[in-house]
Measured scan of single mutants.
Amino acid sequence: KELVLVLYDYQEKSPRELTVKKGDILTLLNSTNKDWWKIEVNGRQGFVPAAYLKKL
């Protein structure tokens, strides 16, 4: 499993997105899109802007 660090808080703006908090370490599911990465948070899957995340 690949992990990502959340660099900035992000509030979901659609049902396909997820809310994340700065400092969270989460599972990366897909990073093929350069702008939006798919991650998992508490069993939910969704997208967060790639600029808000850093691969560990």
Rank of each mutant, 00 (worst) to 15 (best):
K1S: 15
E2R: 09
E2A: 13
E2P: 12
L3N: 09
L3M: 11
L3P: 04
L3Q: 14
V4R: 00
V4Q: 00
V4E: 00
V4G: 02
L5G: 02
L5N: 02
L5A: 06
V6I: 04
V6A: 08
V6T: 03
V6Y: 00
Y8M: 13
Y8V: 10
D9P: 06
Y10K: 00
Y10G: 01
Y10N: 01
Y10I: 01
Q11N: 11
Q11M: 12
Q11R: 10
Q11T: 14
E12V: 13
E12D: 09
E12Y: 07
E12G: 14
K13C: 08
K13F: 05
K13P: 06
K13L: 12
K13W: 03
S14F: 10
S14Y: 13
S14H: 12
S14A: 10
S14G: 13
S14Q: 09
S14L: 07
P15G: 09
P15Y: 10
P15Q: 10
R16S: 11
E17N: 08
E17H: 07
E17L: 04
E17M: 05
E17C: 05
L18P: 01
L18T: 09
L18F: 13
L18E: 03
V20I: 10
V20Q: 00
K21G: 06
K21M: 11
K21S: 12
K21C: 07
K22E: 09
K22I: 05
G23R: 02
D24P: 00
D24N: 09
I25H: 04
L26S: 09
L26M: 10
L26K: 02
L26Y: 13
L26E: 06
T27F: 14
T27D: 07
L28Q: 01
L28V: 08
L28K: 01
L29R: 05
L29Q: 04
L29K: 05
L29W: 06
N30G: 08
N30P: 04
T32F: 12
T32W: 09
T32M: 13
N33E: 10
K34M: 10
K34L: 11
D35G: 11
D35E: 11
D35F: 12
D35N: 15
D35L: 11
D35C: 07
W36R: 03
W36A: 03
W36L: 04
W36C: 06
W36P: 01
W37G: 01
W37P: 01
W37E: 00
K38D: 05
K38L: 12
K38F: 15
I39W: 00
I39M: 07
V41A: 15
N42S: 11
N42R: 09
N42Y: 11
G43H: 09
G43Q: 07
R44N: 10
R44D: 06
R44S: 10
R44G: 05
Q45V: 15
G46T: 03
G46C: 04
G46K: 02
F47L: 14
F47M: 08
F47C: 06
F47S: 04
V48H: 01
V48I: 07
V48T: 02
V48K: 00
P49V: 02
P49C: 03
A50I: 04
A50W: 02
A50D: 01
A50S: 15
A51E: 13
A51T: 10
A51M: 09
Y52M: 09
L53F: 04
L53Q: 01
L53M: 07
K54C: 08
K55H: 11
K55V: 11
K55C: 06
